[in-house]
């Protein structure tokens, strides 16, 4: 464990907590894409298959449980909670996210480190996570007015993967034979997808104006 990875995990945890806090306290999911949340639930479900078979550390197991429980409860809130579901704008959240799942799965079948079920599911979860934010970014561009919590949520989600890139660089130089091209490239693609959001987020923060994304 290194400081970049710990900071990345804490940032990721913060993004999930910000979202849960928003939904639980103000009972609203306005501006949140259910599709992105469903994709993230699928990402964690396929990545943490080894939750009960490979014990790495208490921290690792605990965080996996937190991410699994939080992502599925967010999906439940938006789909089934009698008040929250009313604020879900399904007419705007129209990204056909199922079109992301199949290509990622096919790609994982072709490009992976080991042709085993667990490894293919793990690789699939990496590719899927890289594109999971797309429905949310499309929704942000459509709804224009981004409330602070949603903006912070997306920012933290992008920031965590950027910190992970620093972690991969650190591990590459400190641990011999630590090479995971698939992880690195999908993590880089994921972070690049946030690039323009970061730019507008930083501009709004610097000029102290409300965050607006160009249509």
């Amino acid at each position: 464990m290194n400081i970049f990875r710990l900071a990345g995990d804490m940032t990721h945890l913060a993004s999930v907590l910000v979202l849960l806090l928003k939904i639980h306290t103000i009972k609203s999911c306005a501006g949140i894409s259910l599709k992105t949340q469903e994709l993230y639930a699928l990402v964690f479900a396929t990545r943490y298959l080894d939750l009960f078979t490979d014990y790495i550390s208490l921290y690792n197991t605990l965080m996996k449980l937190i991410f699994l429980v939080s992502s599925f409860s967010i999906v439940w809130y938006i789909r089934h909670h009698k008040i929250v579901r009313r604020s879900y704008d399904k007419d705007q959240d129209t990204f056909r996210h199922y079109f992301l799942v199949l290509p990622c799965f096919l790609l994982a079948l072709v490009i992976n480190e080991k042709f085993t079920v667990k490894e293919i599911m793990w690789t699939f979860s990496l590719y899927l996570e890289a594109v999971a934010i797309l429905p949310q970014l499309v929704l942000l561009q459509r709804t224009r007015n981004i409330d602070n919590l949603t903006g912070q949520y997306v920012f933290l989600l992008g920031a965590y993967r950027s910190l992970y890139i620093l972690n991969w660089i650190y591990r590459y130089f400190t641990e011999p034979h630590y090479v995971h091209w698939i992880t690195w490239i999908s993590g880089l693609v994921q972070t690049l997808l946030y690039a323009d959001f970061f730019y507008y987020y930083f501009q709004s923060w610097k000029n102290n104006v409300k965050l607006e994304l160009p249509a």
């Binding site: 080894d50 690792n60 965080m63 996996k64 991410f67 080991k114 490894e119």
Partner: peptide, 10 residues
């Protein structure tokens, strides 16, 4: 202890 290419990151 980590087996082979088991993934230790979240």
């Amino acid at each position: 202890t980590q087996k082979g290419s088991c993934h230790d990151e979240l």
